[in-house]
């Protein structure tokens, strides 16, 4: 369906928060994503993004510019429209006990976590390199336990160094594979661990098998229809 850019806000670190209005009503569940066309006449795949907030006819994304596609999407002007497939992916339908759940994000992985913690008193552990997501946190009024590799705007180190400061029986995490792998290794296997995963997405609809993610038993799952929220303990991150 067509989506129209209503507002966008640029942050340092090449990250843009974009709010869209949808042509038709949407019902976005936790954990779902949107697959957006790239503006222009070229034939390209769509690009997938986590939905960071959503209403009946609007939703927002937080996009980090890393290449041609994200550049062109974030260059859109207010009032411009583009095609999108929304919502996609398996809804996360487990009941969340926020007192016993630890949310962890690394870098732009924050986009995957935002909707889970929206209006919640959540335990949120966030890590980046040098405080480059500070202005986004301030804008979104989020106060995570902030960890930097440099220690500039928070505690020094990696998020996984601080996991044991919290009490939890469930982890929901989004970020680089190295971070997810480290969470899997450093936490007890009785802790439920949900990883919000990324692989290259082509269709986003289960048509092509392009988004395969490998499990420890050698089999594959499809990030786009089985996920993107998957059992983080089963995944082979290597």
């Amino acid at each position: 369906m067509k989506i129209k850019l209503k507002n966008s806000k640029q942050f340092t670190n090449n990250t843009v928060y974009m709010m869209f209005e949808t042509e038709k009503m949407i019902d976005v569940k936790l954990g779902q994503f949107v697959n957006i066309s790239i503006p222009g006449d070229e034939f390209t795949l769509r690009r997938p993004f986590s939905i960071v907030s959503a209403g009946k006819n609007k939703f927002s994304v937080l996009i980090k510019v890393i290449g041609n596609g994200t550049q062109k999407i974030t260059n859109m002007k207010i009032g411009e429209s583009i095609d999108a497939l929304i919502p996609l992916g398996q809804p996360f339908d487990k009941t969340i006990d926020y007192k016993k759940t630890l949310f962890i994000a690394g870098g732009i992985g924050i986009a995957g976590i935002l909707r889970f913690i929206e209006n919640q008193n959540a335990q949120f552990l966030f890590g980046d390199i040098n405080g480059e997501y500070k202005d986004i946190m301030d804008y979104l009024k989020i106060e995570p336990t902030y960890i930097n590799e440099s220690g500039k705007t928070g505690k020094k180190g990696f998020v996984t160094d601080y996991i044991n400061d919290f009490e939890f029986n469930t982890i929901i995490a989004c970020g680089p594979k190295g971070m997810l792998k480290s969470i899997k290794e450093k936490t007890d296997k009785h802790i439920d661990f949900y990883a919000i995963c990324e692989e290259i997405i082509a269709c986003g609809l289960g048509l092509c098998g392009g988004c395969a993610i490998k499990y420890d038993d050698g089999s594959f799952g499809k990030v786009c229809v089985d996920g993107p929220v998957l059992n983080g303990r089963r995944i082979n991150y290597d």
Partner: peptide
């Protein structure tokens, strides 16, 4: 999708790479 007589696990990721006006795929008959 192609069906083989016996199960095929398919190839490791990445399985897709976008190129100018097209796609390279290495799904491997999963």
């Amino acid at each position: 999708k192609s069906v083989t007589l016996n199960e095929k696990i398919g190839n490791d990721s990445p399985r897709i790479k976008e190129v100018s006006s097209g796609l390279l795929n290495s799904i491997g008959l999963e």
